[in-house]
Amino acid sequence: MIKLLKIEWKKIRTYKVFWILLGLYFIFLSAGILLAEFMINSMVNNVNNRMPIPFPHIAIYYFPDVWQNVAFFASIRYVLIFPAIIMIILITNEFTFKTIRQSIINGMSKIEFLISKLIIILLMALVITTLIAAGTFMIGLGHSGFNDIALLSKGVPFMTGFFISLICYMIYAFFIGFILRNTGLAIAIFTLYSLIIEPVVYFFLRAPFIFRNTIYTYLPVNAVIRLTEYPAIPTLKKLMGLDLQPHVSLASCFIPIGYAAIMICIVFIVMRKKDI
């Protein structure tokens, strides 16, 4: 395990593309989270200009709701795509440079190779989640002060939910990269599917009077993103009639985990059967 980690670390330690993408991810993420309240309130102001009774301004950075809100904004598909692209690059590089072949020749087992990539996914998800949790804690502290351990109550479920989203989404990316073996193609198809195809399909499946079922909840990317479905903004709830998600439901975790598990199985089978 440690050995595999040492090997993977050498591959990314001085890899500029990896660090630049990771940096961009954090910049996008921080900017999104920090500007979210401002943007929501400028919309509120806009609406208030035409309304006789003004809506109160919205605050999203106070405990305990900040956990849920950050988890929501961090798993928006435009942001979540960054770690996925990083994962696609890390796996397709091995095919492009033929280093996967060389690793097997040098005595690594095929299973070990896959495990080393899964370790990277796990570790990246862990590091990102920890950093985001720490950042969220600071934001919450700055806006509402910390006087009760209960304020962390929402932190554990929503950060865990985010962690699961991140892992599953990166496994999807790993799967696509592994199957297609080509960096450009894999990124194009993955991005196209995540950002365009699936939202369109989702839109039609959800259209009222057409499908009276919940099949849309089984769309793979959607299932990942919907783990933390809505931000906790009580005013919005009243305004738009949205149901506030009280917690991350265990049942909703099973869908992305199921997809990820199937993909990992396929990858292991392909690795066994196919020539490298």
Binding site: I7, K11, K16, T99, Q102
Partner: peptide, 20 residues
């Protein structure tokens, strides 16, 4: 087959790690 963005020593270290 090596990582183009790594230097010779680092590439050989990866090989050495794999070979124990």
């Amino acid at each position: 087959n090596f990582f183009p963005y790594l230097d010779a020593v680092c590439n050989l270290r990866i090989v050495a790690d794999i070979k124990d």
